[in-house]
Amino acid sequence: MINHFVPKTLKEALDILSEHDCYIFAGGTDLMVQKHKSSGLLPAFDKDILYVMNLKELDYIKVDSQNNLHIGGISRFCELINSPLVPDIFKTVFLEIASPNIRNTATLVGNIANASPAGDSIVPLNLFNASVVLQSKRGTRTVLVQDFIQGVKKIDREKDELITEVIVPPADLKFYYKKVGSRKAETITKVSLMGGYKVEGGKVKDLRICFGSISTKVVKNHWIEEKYTGISTNELRARIDDIINEYDHEIRPITDQRSTKEYRTVVAKNLLRDFLRQVK
């Protein structure tokens, strides 16, 4: 028999987590598929479940005095899409995640914690150097999303910790985003690219590049980004092939039921080229 915990307060939730190893159940749109057994049967959960959607304390979207966006742990995609506080580029990404019905249920934190290589929200979070806040009875810590996700389904979370918040620092950038799936809606990403850049006085002041779905986690290479920051936009465009080649060893997609290694590789590079051409 497993226990079902439905805490009403964060404190209650953290108390439970300090004593029980639980699935953290938010919107459930990933868990209910993963644990689905058959029509009419209960999902096949093999350990205790902590349901968090009643934690009103985690239901917020706000901006602090440094313009950091704080997203509460149970904020759903539909709420983020409708919030005036959320940057447009996030909305662009969110509007292409799953389907309207799923976006009315699924949470941002759930998408992060699911740690799928095809998780779309993780791409802009990486690009913005966003962090997650984890709380436990032992205390609070903040981890960059890039570090929090360690691999396929692997996250840096202790059993007693709950992700209570996502913090997105501001970024004064121009953006490029393209998600490639197998159809125009309700589709799992084959490959995606988000680019961000800032140009001042003809020079590239900031350059950020994130690939989704082409490796075990989002590819963002700080070293390459730095290398091409500070040069003029003309030089950047002249060196597009060099930049693409820099990513050769980073683009390591697989062949699966949705696409091929070859396709993902070529399209990832095409997208990068398309993005870099727009840096003006």
């Binding site: 459930g28 749109t29 209910m32 598929v33 959607m53 799923i102 009315n104």
Partner: peptide, 26 residues
């Protein structure tokens, strides 16, 4: 049963959701 087809759509607080992915507690 996997949130793909929408045949199980119901409205929760006026918003359409897939009832196959929604546990009753939610």
């Amino acid at each position: 049963g996997e949130g793909e087809c929408g045949a199980c759509t119901v409205l929760v607080k006026g918003e359409p959701v897939n009832s196959c992915l929604t546990p009753i507690i939610n």
